[in-house]
Each structure stands twice: as C-alpha cells, then as structure tokens.
Design a protein around this nucleic acid. Structure first.
Length: 297
DNA sequence: GGAATAACCTGGATGC
DNA sequence: TGCATCCAGGTTATTC
C-alpha cells in the first residue's frame, strides 16, 4: 500500500534513470491503467512519444515526470498495488504489467519503465502543469512552482518545507470528524494512508475517533511532529512491505513493517504499556490502537 | 462546504 | 479439494 515513504522511494529510485531520458515508445497493455487519462491510449501515446523527461517530482502519493517545455507531465498514482519498475528493454513482461515505457538515456542507454498493478487502482496520465498558488516548488524533486492539474487540489505533505502547518491546525480545529479521517483527507495534508495514520496516532497517544475540533493547537502540533518522525523513519527504512504489493524500482521490499507499533499488530502487546493492540472497524477498513495509551476523550 | 458512504479491483486467507 | 466469502484500502463520485 504505497503511502508517502513508499512513493518517495520510487521517485528517488526512478530519478537517476529517467531524468534526461527521452521516451522512444509506449506499450499500453491495459486501458484500465489510464483511467486518469480520459482521452484514451492513442492520445496518451501521442502526447508522450518522443518527449524528454526533465525531473522526477512527488507530492503526497502523487508522482509526476515533467516533460520538455514545462507545459505538461506524466502523472502516476500507484493506488493500492501499483509498481514502477526499471527493467532492461527486452525484459519479459511482469505479472500484472499494464504499461511499458521505452526510454533512451544519454548515459544509461535504453531502459524500460514498467507500470505493473495487481488491483488496477493506480493509473498514469499525461496532464497539464499549473502554477502552484503559493509560489513554492510543486513538490519534492523539482524546484519549479508547477503542479499537474490532477494534483492541484492535494495539500502539501508534512515533509514539504512549504507545508502550511498553521493552516492545517486551523482547518482541523473547525472539523467535527475524527482525527484519523482528517489525517486521511489529502486536501488537508497529503501522503498519509491507513498505516501511517495508525502509527502517528499511536505515537501521539490520540484515539483515532477524537474529534478534530476537540484537539488543542499544542496537541495538533505534537501530532504533526509524530507524523513527520514516522514518515522519516519509514523513508529511511525503505518503506513498509507486507508482501510483494510494494517494492522499489528494483523490485526490492522495504523494512519498516518490522518497526510498526500498532498497524497490523492486533492482539500483540503495545510496545509502550503491554496492553494488547485492538483492531476496530473504520470506514470499511480497520484502525489499530492501544486501548490504554489512546483513550477516547 | 462539510460529512458520510459506495464503488472500483484482484488475489490471498479463511471457513465450510 | 473446491467453492464461497471476507479482507486489504486510495481516490472519486454521489448523496445528504
């Protein structure tokens, strides 16, 4: 389940191989991988073929590769199970391979960028670039204040130097929703999914159903601090892999699953107090929490 | 505008 | 062994 750390690992892995490369050909094997490109595969190919990639950028869980001219970019969202893999040009098809980009790099020669996705929630698109309203760099990996139109409504992530922390605190304190639901709202803070929401709330000792408006400014700043610590640690460990659903561009898994304190540890002792971690239903999925450390107010 | 929910999708795990 | 069901969850559209 790619969240911010996993997508950042992919971005950082792709960058040296794709920045400066030119797209020589595109194989679209499954149209469902272009749900974000409503004009279809022929238009996708026409807009991408022959173009040079100038950067590898990311905001939250969205990844984009700006194209020559700074007017548009190849946008990728990995969804639940998407992978972007670097392969040799004649490598056999991956299981669940949806799209293959053939690129030529001045130093590295010919390469294939493979988009594989088991559950087909992820997709690619060629999208126009818009000016970032705050004038700051659009995301990590680019110095230009440009962002794809499909990413424009997404807030900056907590690791972004231009993240509006004060604005986030004000917005949260207006909301009656539970704080976990708020953390998952990508228009307030991006990059957080179910795993890192549970981990951050455990670290901050906050119950996931605590209403946003009931949290103090101090508590919210402490929560953001814990969010950043969790994301940075996960990033340093290569992301979270429970199975082959998430891998880096070389097909390798991350190690952060060994560092989880709450998520996926139902019934196991809380690392802080020893109470068994509880799992509760949340929005057709699950929350994991310590019933002692994270008491509901 | 905020809040809640359904739908999309595949494959592994589980139960019978 | 085979079949049915559940579960994982990010985003978007829809409804209230």
């Amino acid at each position: 389940m790619p969240e911010l750390p996993e997508v950042e690992v992919v971005r950082a892995g792709l960058a040296p191989a794709v920045v400066g490369a030119r797209v020589s050909a595109i194989d679209v094997l499954d149209e469902r991988a272009l749900t974000r490109h409503p004009r279809g595969s022929a238009d996708f190919v026409a807009r991408l073929e022959g173009r040079a990639i100038t950067a590898a950028a990311r905001r939250g869980k969205f990844l984009w590769l700006p194209l020559d001219g700074d007017a548009d970019a190849l946008v990728a969202h990995l969804g639940m199970s998407g992978q972007l893999l670097l392969r040799s040009p004649d490598a056999p098809a991956e299981r669940h391979e949806r799209i293959r980009l053939h690129i030529e790099h001045p130093q590295h020669g010919r390469l294939a960028v493979v988009f594989a996705d088991q559950r087909t929630f992820g997709s690619l698109a060629v999208d126009v670039l818009l000016s970032a309203p705050d004038g700051a760099a659009g995301g990590r990996g680019t110095a230009k204040a440009l962002v794809p139109s499909q990413v424009a409504h997404i807030a900056r992530d907590a690791l972004d130097p231009a993240f509006d922390e004060a604005g986030f605190v004000v917005a949260v304190r207006r909301r009656a929703s539970g704080i976990k639901r708020i953390l998952l709202d990508q228009t307030l803070v991006s990059g957080i999914g179910n795993i890192y929401a549970d981990e951050s709330l455990w670290a901050a000792r906050i119950h996931p159903e605590t209403e946003g408006r009931s949290l103090s400014t101090r508590a919210l700043r402490r929560l953001l601090h814990e969010v950043r610590l969790v994301l940075e640690k996960a990033l340093a460990e290569g992301g979270t892999s429970f199975d082959a659903q998430y891998v880096n561009v070389n097909g390798q898994t991350g190690y952060f699953a060994h560092s989880l304190n709450a998520y996926g540890r139902t019934g196991q002792p809380c690392p802080r107090c020893g109470e068994p971690i509880a799992r509760v239903a949340f929005m057709n999925r699950s929350s994991h929490l310590c019933p002692v450390c994270q008491r509901r107010r």
